[in-house]
Write a protein that binds this DNA or RNA. Sequence first.
DNA 1: CACATTTGACACCCGATCGTATCAGATCGT
DNA 2: ACGATCTGATACGATCGGGTGTCAAATGTG
Lengths: 197, 197
Amino acid sequence: MPETARVYGGVTATERRDERRQKLIDAGLELFGTRGVAAVGIVDICAEAKLTKRYFYENFASIDELAAAVFQQVTDRLVEQVIPGIIAGGGQDPRPALTVYLRGALSDPRVARLLAVEGRTGALAPYGDGFATRAVELWFEFSPAPEGSDDAALRLRAYAFAGALTQVGLAWHEGVLDLSVDQVIDELVDVFHALTA
Amino acid sequence: MPETARVYGGVTATERRDERRQKLIDAGLELFGTRGVAAVGIVDICAEAKLTKRYFYENFASIDELAAAVFQQVTDRLVEQVIPGIIAGGGQDPRPALTVYLRGALSDPRVARLLAVEGRTGALAPYGDGFATRAVELWFEFSPAPEGSDDAALRLRAYAFAGALTQVGLAWHEGVLDLSVDQVIDELVDVFHALTA
DNA sequence: CACATTTGACACCCGATCGTATCAGATCGT
DNA sequence: ACGATCTGATACGATCGGGTGTCAAATGTG
């Protein structure tokens, strides 16, 4: 807590602090998304971010706190990108939203892994649950409910589709699906319609 | 490696060894299935199994080796139980196989967590992939392929259904699905038919 | 030019865990 | 009964990572 905040390298103190914080988050996305949260230490993060431990503890109190920030940023950006797609779909056509989501998640295996694996374990579990809740809410947003169906049954289908998305994403990254991204999108649009019929 | 194997407590040396090995695997299922593999140490396993470290190293060289054995045993038992269900379904009706699988996975949250979360990370990843492969093969076993469809598209639907199963299982354990096991089975049978139509 | 602050590199202590070793008591073979 | 082996508990050295502190060099302030 310095009493006088000076300008260094042409940038203010808070700007420098935020830059370092972002570098740590970037390093977290890289390492968490490849090795997994449990296999990453503070020293690893600092090496990846090219910073020292001092600046880690300046921004985060623990690895889990950094992991939470990484997860939060990734999911926030994803939701932020998907919303316009939902609006474009007009609550009827899932393709624009699905396209945006899958291009965001499928194009980056680190994001896919964070969402599908890391978001379920340890300190990230509550955040993963929160994202799943948001996803299911988004589902109901642009999936007009068939009048006769049970509410719980609808929720089940929402989770089923969410699980299908992540599993297909993982399989695609492993290379067992011999399909282009656009083909995957086409197929998942069909799956969506099959589940909502 | 004792040169002379004696009988202790009425059981032979190899029997005692196998009993201890099974106690370790049971402890592994309990702890891995609740805390997660990464959060469990050898001492924890020994405390849960009421054995000492000596007998851990008698059977396994590392935590990952125990985790592999646990995963292997769980998935083997699952497949072993499901096969008769597939036969009972005669390659047409998925309900018997689904019932057996979901009763096996849904009834034990530790198994669900192992399959859905732990099987994707760290040293268990290859085994998880192997199980996914087996599951997709089983899918093709009792899902006669529509003649006109692409093979890759079929695989995608197989992974989609597998992902739906695990995600619904997790959601059910979290209590966000207000459905009985039988209702979940009914709904997933519908999902299956929707995906294979 | 002094002086304060920021930065980065490194040293240090501490607790946890791993893997091995030791030892007394229980159990079995002869 | 006596010796050998099995068992369980505990102890020990070593390593690793977390968290804090120190110090010199770099940069901005007056």
